[in-house]
């Protein structure tokens, strides 16, 4: 479980995150949604310590991230998997090496166990034969999938995915969404997914946090979101064309 209490972050005089509080529960897929530039990635980057918020607390199962010693932080890092918005695969490593890298850094697995892990996660993201390719030889969507494979390979307790299915075709999107959800349930981990995609929201959003211009604007689940009368959220949902499609189905 990750608890966020009163998080504030500014860049210069631009107040990007305004007093955000939320609870992301274990074993659930939590979604952070909002327009481009609303502060979603910034929130995730604060949570994992890539940037330091001006104020607020972030509790990882009770451990206050900002209060931890360097050693404890390092330990906590071994429990975090992160998929970056742009995948952030290491250019100078093959797909296989990219996925093995966090295993080398964070775990004490044997060579054989690592290889098994690599094969397994590549299988899961439906790229079972891409071991030897370099990131430059992959399409954007394939990079995303390798990024996911790399994030989940050390079996993290906390998984962050920044737009895991942007750039993927609808079918692969569903596969990836389901994969993230499966892993969350199977390993009982805390998963945060940043998304624009209303299909994912409806599919896997057990907890949804809607951020509007840096403010927490709405929270709820995928049942409540359809009945909301929150204006900004409605226009976000409508812009995706989701409701109109659904109504046409009925």
């Amino acid at each position: 479980m990750i608890e966020v209490v009163g998080l504030n972050k500014s860049f210069g005089d631009k107040h990007v995150l305004k007093d955000i509080s939320a609870v992301f529960e274990t074993g659930k897929t939590s979604l952070i949604i909002g327009a481009s530039g609303s502060g979603k990635s910034t929130l995730a980057r604060c949570l994992v310590g890539l940037i330091t918020p001006e104020s607020g607390r972030m509790l990882y199962d009770g451990r206050d991230f900002l209060e931890l010693s360097n050693k404890e932080k390092k330990e906590l890092r071994t429990e975090i998997g992160f998929l970056f918005q742009g995948s952030a695969l290491f250019d100078f490593m093959t797909v296989e090496e990219n996925i093995r890298f966090p295993l080398d850094m964070l775990t004490n697995l044997t060579k054989k166990e690592k290889q098994m892990r690599v094969d397994e996660v590549l299988e899961r993201v439906e790229m079972p034969t891409s071991h030897k390719l370099f990131p430059s030889e992959l399409s954007g969507g394939m990079k995303k999938r390798v990024g996911i494979a790399r994030a989940i390979s050390p079996q993290p307790k906390y998984l962050f995915c920044d737009e895991p299915n942007s750039g993927l075709d609808p079918q692969t999107s569903i596969v990836i969404d389901n994969l993230i959800h499966e892993i969350t349930v199977e390993y009982n981990i805390t998963t945060l997914v940043i998304s624009h995609d209303m299909n994912s929201v409806m599919e896997i959003g057990e907890y949804i946090l809607f951020i509007h211009k840096g403010d927490k604007w709405w929270e709820g689940d995928n049942q409540k979101i359809l009945k909301t009368d929150n204006e900004e959220l409605l226009s976000f949902v409508n812009a995706s064309g989701f409701l109109t499609n659904k109504k046409a189905d009925l």
Binding site: L50, T78, F82, F84, A88, L89, D91, L106
Partner: peptide
């Protein structure tokens, strides 16, 4: 700029 350095930091490197 492609966040590879951030990715290293997250892995405790």
């Amino acid at each position: 700029v492609t966040e590879q350095i951030d990715a290293l930091e997250i892995m405790g490197v």
